[in-house]
Each structure stands twice: as structure tokens, then as C-alpha cells.
Simulated assay, not measured.
Amino acid sequence: MKIGAISDIHSNWVALNQVLNQPNINKVSDTYCAGDLVGYYAQPNEVIARIRKEKICSVKGNHDAAVVNSTPSSFSIHAKRAIDWNRRNLFNDNMDYLSSLPTQIRKFVNDRDLLIVHGSPKNPLSEYIYERDIDELFLEFYFDLPPDVIVLGHTHRPFVKKVNNTLIVNPGSVGQPRDKDPRASYATINLNELSAKIHRVEYDINKIAEKTAKELPRALSDRLYEGR
């Protein structure tokens, strides 16, 4: 059995639409999202509408929480402007949807214990976990009984790593990659084999960049071309 994993869409519907139209993700049993549906770009309603239409289970990310609650002072000036714009332009029913998202999902899927958080198991909204942080001590620190599969987001940098009998996957960012590869990133996970694969897909960056530049700082659009 295979599932899909996406994360960090950040109101980039153009990238999300391209990802969800890929044949390999259309063949999975379910797709899960590790948060940050909104922020940075200018299509929050379109993103949430597609997520809801496809019945993708999602957790809440720090940008989702910022739109729902208030903009953290720690955010960069461009991130703050994008959060405030997203909040002003989000439809009421989509705001309610963001508010309803849990900060973590833990469930059994095909007899595998699956955990999904945006940040870390102890700080699901805001802690960054990079590939270099993943080892046996990571599992011992965060879990009495580690799950079979952990899906993380937040860093915008994809990785797949297996420690003992636990598979840890960050699918990377759909809407704002930061690993010097501008292509949208997502993952498919084989629950039978406890393995995963990162996929990259090109999309029309010009389309979202031009739309965003009309409303938000140009720097947010420019970084998409460099994957940073």
C-alpha cells in the first residue's frame, strides 16, 4: 500500500495543482499534508479548496496558525505581509477549515503506526527538524514507542531516512522549495516495504509569481526561480 505526502504549499495553487495531477500520486490510497497550506503567496482559497475537494488529511503548520490567530513578531517582514494579506483575503469557510486542523495526526494505516506533524513531535508548529538531526537519539528523545512512519514538514527540504524500524520522511515543499531546486517536491511512501521516494515536478512559476507580485513583495516571487 502506498500513500502520498505533501507539505508547505504556502498558497501556491499552481504548484499544488501540478503535484496533485501527477499519475503516481493519483495511484496512492490516500495523501496526507504536513501543514502550511497558506502564507507567502496569493492563492490561499484555491489551495484550501483543492485540499478539501481531494479530502487530503492535513495538520496545521505555523503559517496556518498565524493566519488563524495572529502574526508572530519573529516572522520576517515579507512573511508578515503575506500572512496579513492571506488573512484578509481568506473566505470565512476556509478560515474555519484552517482553525479546525489538528497539530498532529497519529493513526494506524495498513497496520503501520503513522505520525504526521509540521515541526517536531514535541513542538508540532515551530521546531525545525533537518535530516542531520535524525538518529537513534532523536527517536529516544521524542518517543517511548516510536511510530513506524513519521512525516515532517517546515524545513522545505526533502529527505528520506530510516532509523531502526522507523521511516522518517520530509516530502519537501510544494510551494516554496529551499534546496536550490525550484521544482515542486512531494513524496510517495510504501507502507508495506517501509520505504519512500521523493518526487520533483516542474510547474509554471511565472503564473504564481506574476499573480503574487501584484499583491505581495516581489522578493517572495523571485526566490521561487532559485528554489531558496
Rank of each mutant, 00 (worst) to 15 (best):
N164F: 01
G39A: 05
D93I: 10
R200H: 12
V109I: 15
Q22C: 10
D36N: 14
K197R: 13
S221Q: 06
I198D: 04
R52F: 00
H156I: 02
D222W: 02
P102H: 13
N165D: 15
Y41E: 04
R178K: 14
I116D: 03
Y203D: 00
S195F: 02
Y40R: 03
V38F: 05
N192V: 05
S185P: 06
K60C: 14
T103C: 12
S99W: 05
K180Q: 14
E127T: 04
S120D: 11
D204E: 08
S126M: 13
S120Y: 12
F141C: 03
S58Q: 12
I6D: 07
V109K: 06
D148M: 06
I51M: 06
L145A: 09
F141R: 10
G172H: 11
D96E: 13
K180H: 13
E226V: 13
N110R: 13
G172A: 11
K55D: 10
I129V: 15
P23T: 09
N26S: 06
L152C: 09
T31N: 11
L216C: 03
V14I: 15
L16M: 05
F141P: 00
D84G: 00
V19H: 09
I51T: 09
D181A: 00
R228A: 05
D204I: 04
N123M: 10
D148C: 08
K207V: 08
A5R: 11
E140F: 01
R183S: 13
W13A: 14
L139Q: 04
V19C: 08
I198W: 11
G175T: 06
V47E: 07
E127G: 05
K197V: 14
R52W: 00
S74P: 00
I116F: 00
D8I: 08
H118W: 04
R132E: 14
L191G: 11
L90C: 08
P23W: 12
K2C: 05
S11D: 03
L152I: 08
I168T: 06
G172D: 13
I25Q: 06
L145W: 02
I6K: 02
D84I: 12
G39H: 07
N12P: 08
S221E: 05
L90T: 01
S73V: 12
E54P: 05
F91G: 06
I134P: 10
V67R: 04
D84L: 14
S173E: 10
